[in-house]
Amino acid sequence: MAKGVKPRVKVPKTAAAGDTITIKTLISHKMESGQRKDDEGNVIPRSIINRFTCDFNGENVIDVTMEPAISTNPYLEFEALVPEAGEFTFTWYDDDGSIYETAKKIAVE
């Protein structure tokens, strides 16, 4: 597991059924591109998060394939429908096989 990886997500705590909400996510990760060289001139191996998914109560919201051209500390913003109360789950997939997960509950007013 890459060092110091920490996911952050911003989801409203409540919404009305059928509402559209904005979700922001940020995860601390170097996103080593595989293009850089170290002081000795050796290529630093690629080490990135290559996929992100967001689901709500088992239904998919967005599925993103990420490449080395995504900036350090990857940031994503998108909109989701909230048909009912439930839980958003967020998953990031690291090149090294690690999976970082977090979840946020949302109540329906």
């Binding site: 689901d55 919201v61 993103v64 490449e67 995504i70 994503l76 913003e77």
Partner: peptide, 17 residues
């Protein structure tokens, strides 16, 4: 990047850096 929008995507839009 490639963005695939699921059933609960409220818009076919995304932002990143």
């Amino acid at each position: 990047a490639t963005f695939k929008f699921g059933k609960l995507a409220a818009s076919r839009a995304a932002s990143t850096r």
